[in-house]
Simulated assay, not measured.
Amino acid sequence: MIRSFAACLLVLGMLGHSASAQEASITEWRKDREEPIDQPQKPALREKEADQPDFARWSFGLNGGYAYRLFRAGRITSHDEQEYIKDLKSGIAFGGEVAYFPWKHVGFGVRYEMYKGKANLDSAQSEKVTIQHLSGALIHRSFLKNGKTAVLTSLLLGYQPYENKSTVGAQQFTFSGKTMNWGVSVGIEQPISPKLALNLTGTAMMGAIYRLQRKTAFSTETLHLSKDDSVDLSRFSVTLGIRFM
């Protein structure tokens, strides 16, 4: 009887050992196979990365270059006058732009540009012209086949102040006015680093002033101009710039 009881205990002990060994084996089996099941966080990370835009949303740029005014001059009677008008039409343009792209190909921006030009005629007559414009911009961006170089086309609409400081003999005048302006620009942008790009842009601006304020040392007068006598602010510029993204 005692032997039978001992034999039972031995059998139960062996069964218990076998069960615990089997359980340990099952635990290892589960562990080895649950790790790859728990690991699919890499695809999740990839999905997260895919949600992030592969283009810059915000950018800030500075630029400068050559500008040429498109107004039609009156009758020119001498070579000196011809050179004077040529100098008055030619000038420099410089400014900056902030842009935001909520979508890859369409964005919005604010652009500021200043034009400066001057001319002298035999030291008896001179003009120094400053034209500014502050515009809102609707921007379309398309990429070339390399996926990096972008072509930016902008439609501009905004505000344009004008100032002309003139001297005729001993008299000095300041003409000033303001008007709405609109324009278009087309540029190509080439990244040189993840946060920096170079761009070359051509811009055409349109606008005319029909009311001027003329100031002298003694008086201020408002001039109302006809269509034929209006001040044409139309111009074209080519600028080279740097953009931070």
Rank of each mutant, 00 (worst) to 15 (best):
M1K: 07
S4H: 01
F5I: 14
A7T: 04
L15W: 00
H17R: 01
S20M: 14
S20V: 13
S25I: 02
I26P: 03
T27L: 13
W29Y: 07
E34K: 01
E35M: 13
E35Y: 01
P36I: 07
Q41E: 11
Q41I: 15
P43V: 04
R46N: 05
K48F: 14
Q52R: 14
D54A: 09
A56G: 11
L62R: 08
N63H: 14
G64N: 06
G65K: 02
G65F: 13
Y68T: 15
R69C: 07
R69H: 02
L70I: 06
F71N: 08
F71K: 05
R75H: 11
I76N: 03
T77I: 02
T77K: 15
H79Q: 12
I85Y: 12
K86S: 13
K86G: 09
L88Q: 10
L88D: 15
K89M: 10
S90N: 06
A93T: 12
F94Y: 13
E97T: 10
V98Q: 10
Y100L: 09
F101H: 10
P102G: 03
V106T: 14
F108Y: 08
F108Q: 05
G109V: 01
V110D: 09
V110H: 03
M114C: 10
Y115I: 09
Y115L: 11
K116T: 14
A119W: 09
L121H: 00
L121P: 03
A124M: 04
Q125P: 14
Q125N: 15
S126E: 04
E127P: 02
K128G: 01
G136C: 01
G136Q: 10
I139F: 00
F143S: 05
L144I: 01
K145C: 03
K148Y: 08
T149V: 10
L152C: 07
L155N: 09
L155T: 07
L156E: 13
L156D: 07
G158D: 11
P161H: 09
N164E: 12
N164D: 13
N164P: 08
N164A: 06
G169Y: 02
Q172T: 15
F175Y: 10
M180G: 10
N181R: 02
G183A: 08
G183Y: 03
V184H: 01
V184W: 02
S185Y: 00
E189G: 05
P191D: 01
K195R: 04
K195L: 00
K195H: 13
T201D: 09
T201V: 04
T203S: 05
M205P: 00
G207F: 02
A208R: 05
Y210V: 14
R211H: 03
R211T: 05
Q213L: 11
K215D: 00
K215P: 02
F218D: 02
T222Q: 15
H224C: 00
L225F: 12
S226T: 15
D228Q: 06
D229E: 10
V231P: 01
L233K: 03
T239W: 01
G241Y: 06
I242S: 07
R243H: 04
